[in-house]
Design a protein around this nucleic acid. Sequence first.
DNA 1: GCAAATTAATGATTTATTCAAG
DNA 2: CTTGAATAAATCATTAATTTGC
Lengths: 215, 215
Amino acid sequence: MSPTASSRWSPTTEQLMILEELYRSGIRTPSASQIQQITTHLSFYGRIEGKNVFYWFQNHKARDRQKLRRKLNKQMQLQQQQQQQQQLQVHHCQINHDNNVMINNNHFVGTFGYPFGSITQDISFFNSPSLLFEGVAANTSEGRVNCKRNCYNQQSLVEKNDNIALSNYGWKLVDVNHETSSCCTRPLKTLDLFPLTTTRIKEDCTTSTKTQNSM
Amino acid sequence: MSPTASSRWSPTTEQLMILEELYRSGIRTPSASQIQQITTHLSFYGRIEGKNVFYWFQNHKARDRQKLRRKLNKQMQLQQQQQQQQQLQVHHCQINHDNNVMINNNHFVGTFGYPFGSITQDISFFNSPSLLFEGVAANTSEGRVNCKRNCYNQQSLVEKNDNIALSNYGWKLVDVNHETSSCCTRPLKTLDLFPLTTTRIKEDCTTSTKTQNSM
DNA sequence: GCAAATTAATGATTTATTCAAG
DNA sequence: CTTGAATAAATCATTAATTTGC
């Protein structure tokens, strides 16, 4: 209960709610200035630093992806099991033969659609969709590249315009915020990120969508 | 020739020499204050920012590891090929049988010593040493964990003592250096990192080893 | 020699993984 | 077990070497 320095930040309920709302509204990798604004705003509800905001978004994004992957992976597995079962019923005469390779290989992706050839530099292995997800060799190539491409369109390009060249990593952040952020400063400018309605949870998004566009 | 802003820093010869010397002397993940010192010192030889130093060490370390992995990987492959050859000479009656699995698999690590079992959450697959290294499914688990453990002992723990809680990531760095580092400041304090002899390339290391210990 | 074209290095970013507090 | 923090790995993107055709 005493406010003695605990080794790590833990968000207050309100801070958390706001962060989650921002996340829902589409923010994934806030730029330095965005982080600055968010931090300033949230410092009104408790001690907080820029890096906390930075890490929060990073972790939240990562764990969202992770959750999704797990889910899809599970679906895949189920599908495959079902397919296998069906095949067993139809071609049950081949069971003993195929068993040499498939037995016990719930995760043995190496055998599914592995494109042979290509010796050294070519990394375009593993095109099987099952490799996109958690399990064994999920993050080797191709698959993740595609995945990433999708993610890029969400934030990065926007930020390139906002922040001339460096985007959102720490180095640019602190000089605006650090050492002067010891709470007690109420938001000085009107923040685009926080139009006035931070406690609204879920609406039809028609009035609030421009929140994000103006950054 | 004109010093018009190129989008990324490229180190001068002297900066590079010094960085490499520091690296050789054992620095891998410099703390914020170390980065600050190094930056200040190197800014004497040309424009440079803290993040450049940070990135340089990060990349250099990573690419060192990578080089090592590649090398060891190559050795492994050779060894395995030799072993295979030997086995072929001894058990040549089994060739046709094994071919079903091994043919064309220069990188097909999935078949080497794969421990069956463990369905969903357990990630402790792939214990084969060949999986530690580049190729296909190199970075899945276990192997890398071990690798990492080793690396930790080199720097991180030291830095925990140096820098109270945050160690060396961007957030702490800029407030000391940024926006005031526009060259023209000669090193103000005597730097432990740079005792006086920065141009010495290679010696017996007996007189200079304490350089690193005092940080 | 010397640019255009390729390729290799490497600075900078983003994502994945791991550690560890609560 | 959840999640803030930290680190390592993968990737992107630009610059430097290098090659190639003239």
